[in-house]
Design a protein around this nucleic acid. Structure first.
Lengths: 343, 343
DNA sequence: TGTTAGCACTCTATCACCTCGAGTGCTAAC
DNA sequence: GTTAGCACTCGAGGTGATAGAGTGCTAACA
């Protein structure tokens, strides 16, 4: 069976109408509402074909059709009108992000909330934090006998604090010396770039304070390194989906929301095809059983070709893909611009 | 109409059975299940009285009785057996809190989660942060020309970082001097205790670095002071309640969960009668319309007579008050002990 | 006088049954 | 290839009928 333009129009009509009404779509509805110039009987024939092709399905014999996951996939890949962004929405995102640049966290939260509300979905944000994990400044401060505070400033002015146990005999001057040596040797380097001989150099020069250096380096590498792996994930608007009719069953809702609270699940959902800017996963494609009635759209944003974060939308399979994709796209682009200006 | 011991027993039976089964309780059920030594007919008479007194009510004519809010109130105030803590649960709390003291945040989260799971309620924690807001150590670090980092360590080892703009001419030695002066004069003092003459003393000695001192002091006072007012609120187990039959309606769930996301609502709910250690608010007593089908139990924990935080449980009106109260009590006590040891 | 057995009554939940309408597939005519 | 028409299917929603749980009242009992 071949796809032709009329079949495509009918499939599109089914998808759009089902997105709008959440009710199975009948042939008569299509012939009346969408001006295809053919009668409902013809549409019925075509719909039988589409069903045979696996693009739409019938909940029961005497009901209309709803899109199958494959149908959504076809719609997203070939039919969806990607450019019909509401200009106002675009404006909204841009201004929300730009208005108060000062506290990045706040702004992100606001934009996420806004996005979630407009699309009636849940927004997820992953900050990769890969960039800027080089060391700018490290300082050990004596707090009380036997205890020091390690202050680490990253290249992007993020700050980390860790307490450190030190020998009671150690003085402020010793700590300053250790700080100085570490700074001199490791400033501007990523953890991957630490060379064996650099570390040996530090240890040799600070034989005396060996114990502290050892401990400090270990902490430092864990901060620079692990922070890398341990991405920060934010979630906003987790309750928005509840207004959708597909979530009228509380037990479903509970298991869905519970799985969205798990980092692993979110990470899995937000895994994206790095080649494409935007990834759409429909239903089972998400790979997580508890969210098999949902779809996920992920956009990543890059600075200098490197992905530094991802924004995602989670909603019911019957979500408004066109709007969601364009909103997400705008969001990612605006974020990219914002980051570029900071650099 | 007077309350007598038999009426009390019947009321207690109604409350307990309704808590257990979530179904209206009939007279026959009580006479069979709870050994009161009288027939169901007698119980019927008494129940009619209890209804007249407003302590129980009938959903419809031919149904059993359920406790009214006043009934719960009577139960909580006069009938509830406060001492029947499950020893195992107590043990659970104690070990959860004590086992890994290192990261206070982690431990609190864990205990809250545990409490929420055991009671099938939502746990709320308010940290007043009033205690320990005295200064332990302040250090200004040069980051780059014109920019310094202020590291502040509180008495309870909480750490705050703030960037500071400084004159480009300022050296590391200048900053050290400023840090030293501030430490000498303000260590161990709360913001309320700053005396005019102490501050003048600092300014006089550091005429030269006046600008930086000024700025640093302002930041310091905002950290020590504002942090005071701006309590931290944590919520855990927000989804636990969903397994209860009273929350099978999604729209209710949504509005409930949404209001629990609002700081103001939580603050309002966690307002407690400071005289009593534990406050129980039933239904409308919470004062928040969206949670009128819920009850809230709040326990505060004190160190040296001063409230430093509160733990709360939010659950359906039909919650197991006895268990909840004793669990919460144990939790508060254990926290008090833990804090006292830290001091 | 308090307690109890018995009985008529009330109300809900449940199930079978029916009808209505939306939607289909098929066929024959255009 | 398209369409009108028709028989058919199936679920949603309404209607009784029934069972069962629970009540209130009354009269008898200790």
């Amino acid at each position: 069976m071949e796809m032709d333009s009329r079949k495509e129009k009918i499939l599109e009509a089914v998808v759009l109408d089902y997105i709008e009404t959440a009710e199975p779509v009948g042939s008569r509805t299509i012939s009346k509402k969408y001006d295809l110039g053919v009668s409902s009987a013809t549409i019925r024939n075509e719909m039988a074909d589409l069903e045979e092709m696996g693009l739409i399905e019938q909940p029961h014999t005497s009901a209309g059709r709803i899109p199958s996951e494959a149908g959504y996939r076809y719609y997203v890949d070939y039919l969806m009108n990607k450019s019909d962004i509401q200009e106002e929405a675009k404006q909204l995102i841009t201004t929300t992000i730009r208005n108060k640049r000062e506290q990045v966290g706040e702004v992100l939260r606001d934009s996420m909330k806004m996005l979630a509300e407009v699309t009636n979905c849940t927004t997820v944000m992953v900050l990769d934090d890969k960039h800027g994990t080089t060391l700018k400044l490290l300082q050990l401060l004596p707090v009380e006998p036997g205890k020091a505070l390690m202050v680490i400033i990253m290249e992007d002015d993020k700050i980390e604090n860790r307490f450190l146990e030190i020998p009671e005999s150690m003085t402020k001057e010793d700590l300053d010396l250790v700080s100085l040596m570490i700074n001199q040797n490791l400033r501007g380097l990523k953890v991957d770039d630490w060379q064996r001989h650099i570390l040996e150099n530090i240890f040799q020069n600070l034989q005396h304070q060996r114990q502290v250096v050892d401990c400090a380096l270990e902490m430092l590498s864990s901060i620079l390194g692990i922070q890398n792996a341990d991405k920060k994930i934010y979630l906003e608007g987790g309750l928005n989906m509840l207004s959708q009719p597909e979530f009228k069953d509380v037990t479903k809702v509970k298991s869905l929301l519970q799985s969205l609270e798990q980092q692993e699940v979110l990470t899995q959902l937000m895994e994206a095809d790095n080649a494409a800017g935007i990834t759409v996963k429909i239903g089972a494609e998400t790979g997580v059983d508890q969210v098999k009635d949902c779809s996920v759209i992920v956009a990543d944003y890059k600075v200098k070709g490197e992905t530094i974060g991802k924004v995602g939308l989670i909603g019911p399979t019957r979500m408004d893909y066109a709007t969601a994709v364009s909103m997400l796209n705008t969001m990612a682009l605006t974020l990219e611009e914002a980051y570029q200006e900071i650099e």
